[in-house]
Amino acid sequence: MADPDNRWNRRLFLHVPAIFLVLFFVLPLIALVILSFWQTENYKIVREWSATNYVTLATEPAYFVFFVRSLFLAIGVSIFSVAVSWPIAFFIVRHGGRYKLILSLLLAVPFLSGEVLRLISLQGMLGPTGLVNGVLLKIGSAPLRFIMYSNWATFIALVYLYLPMVVTTVYLSLLNFDFRLTSAASSCGANRFQVFCEIVWPLNLSGTIVGFLLCFIPTLSASLAPRFLGGPSGVLYGMSIAQQFGESGTWALGAAMGVVLFLFSMAVLGVFSLGIDLRRTGFTGMGRL
């Protein structure tokens, strides 16, 4: 450690990216906290310290409703995505054979094509003139009302947006899982149910939790999907933040909402990370070191 060469290397390789993150990731979050204790009047920021914004948040029931709605939606979307991801990832790992790589990469196409474009595609499917209702009208049935401008539409959209992410995380975890352990358990007399519950699931729990969080955190703050597909009763918390910074110009209140969202996300992250062993997620391949 003492030789100067190594110290310079550490500075270059570890400290440059770390300083970049501190400057442009940590510092902005601090600025957000500061802003949340100031006020906005007539689209101008007034630098007076007070907790008015937080009082507004706590006393105005609308924000609480938005938050609870977002929370339930995020929990539902994440649990559904994890439940669907497991069979998909398991099938690719166990039976994918030489198509493993292409199957896992194909998941990335819908993920990489961007939120707005995916929402456009979804609107083409679910909207009043979309494919689903077009087909229903063609065969003479009534259009499905619940998939147009409702919380269900938001639910479908959010699953569509984040399912690839969850499948990929679970897939990476299973890929680094040593399946010989299951054969060992079987030959020791465990039935298939026991093998899954006592070997496969616990040893891939960390990867699953990471997948859950990578879906939960963005869905909790979803702002585009509900705005476009959610309809009048579908206002979500993230969408409300976006409005504070956009149309209504109440930046300080929006900042306070952002701080609440950040603290809540961190709390969830903290609780769940107790159950995470990063080495087991298969994320960086560190488990094999």
């Binding site: 902005p28 979050l29 600025a31 957000l32 955190i217 963005p218 703050s221 900042a255 952002g258």
Partner: peptide
Amino acid sequence: FVSEILLGISSMSL
């Protein structure tokens, strides 16, 4: 693990 919207508004605030 920090959503895009938070990253956006916090950078803007800074």
